[in-house]
Design a protein around this nucleic acid. Structure first.
Lengths: 214, 214
DNA sequence: CTTTTAACACCTAGGTGTAAAATT
DNA sequence: AATTTTACACCTAGGTGTTAAAAG
């Protein structure tokens, strides 16, 4: 039970040293210690209990282009479209482990390569030389089955692997044309599916160090 | 015009420091400066001209598991099954560039990670801390179209992606059962296809640092 | 009852040899 | 004539939501 995160986190970075080498990584941290349930008739997530996230260290996903010069990182959009989420706490494939029915927020880390440390295979963040960014609009709620039909529609319309479920003809939403014109989706609060069957979350933005859903 | 190398080079390593980090890489060097042609009626390659290889530095393919501890490297068979060969001298994808109708031999490099050098993105071999191995039986001749029907048969029988060309029924050769019993193929001198249409070569062995075709 | 898992059809993405066409 | 390129059908490999079954 592991699926890619979709929409994926995409960022632009500025202000790096052009010749310095950097690793760029992503992790996903809990927003709170609450468990949520989706109330269908009011179309919103409501607190349904407590959970203790305190003892688990989030797994780091190193961008596959790492390490790379500041110049190269700044020249392109950095896309984390291969990040995989799982609800299996025993996962040994290095995927990001999350609990279903909880709220999370991705963080992007820019890590300057430093000869004092062996960053060759980073398992945890170094103490220095790290800058961390996160974006309110990328917050999401994990699920194993979609709770919200708009999410299902967004995924089917946007994820190339879900093409088989697209309704041919007049299924195109009002935003479709805009999204094809503007690669950066405007801030939206969205749920999205990620686990064996689901997860719910939103992602998109543009900022000093911008982030946007794929 | 780029294809995977098949059979792929597979090696076992011994004698590494268990806790030391190593990169393991492969490159392919010319066996001589001759151009060859295949003489069908005598079923052999014959010299057909000269070429100057002297000014080109072979490209290095770093094993995707790099860097990794000596302990981990020694515990598994190291397979280079994603190595891609091309005859395009302008290739900018980092694939290994070879000329058709020439003889080549793969080399495997074991590179100890050394904090004095930045091995994070190796383009060329460092001056120290490298051990290089190669195996006579992995020598091969590059082609763009198969010259030898036995090679075609070997590829179709052994390469999962060529399954569509397998002849159902009594197409199985005498070695098939053996090969399924023993993962290490005995030394064979073989041609094989690798370019837009072809390359010819063999690969297999068992040695202090063993190598075998996939 | 709510939530998770597993099998499934349907896709994307890419690795095969083939055969015909193009190149040299 | 020899060699290379291209389009192709046929595979492997893996990412989708769906659905029914399983689990809690």
């Amino acid at each position: 039970a592991r699926r890619r995160m979709f929409p994926s986190v995409r960022v632009k970075v500025k202000g790096l040293e052009p010749l310095q080498q950097y690793y760029i990584a992503i992790d996903v941290v809990p927003v709170d210690s609450k468990r949520y349930r989706y109330v269908y008739h009011s179309s919103q997530w409501m607190v349904a209990g407590n959970t203790d996230h305190s003892c688990i260290t989030p797994r780091l996903y190193i961008h596959p282009d790492s390490p790379c010069s500041g110049e190269t990182w700044m020249r392109q959009i950095i896309s984390f479209d291969r990040v995989k989420l799982t609800n299996n706490e025993m996962d040994d494939k290095g995927h990001i482990i999350l609990q279903s029915m909880h709220k999370y927020k991705p963080r992007v880390h820019v890590i300057a390569q430093d000869s004092r440390f062996d960053l060759a295979q980073i398992q945890s963040l170094p103490a220095e030389g790290v800058q961390t960014f996160s974006f309110q609009e990328t917050e999401f709620t994990t699920v194993t089955a979609y709770q919200n039909q708009q999410i299902t529609k967004l995924k089917i319309d946007r994820n190339p692997f879900a093409k088989g479920f697209r309704d041919p003809g007049r299924n195109r939403g009002v935003l479709d044309g805009l999204l094809e014109t503007y690669p950066w989706r405007p801030p939206l609060a969205l749920d999205f599916k990620a686990f064996g069957a689901d997860s719910q979350g939103g992602s998109s933005s543009s900022s000093p160090v911008a982030s946007s859903g794929g």
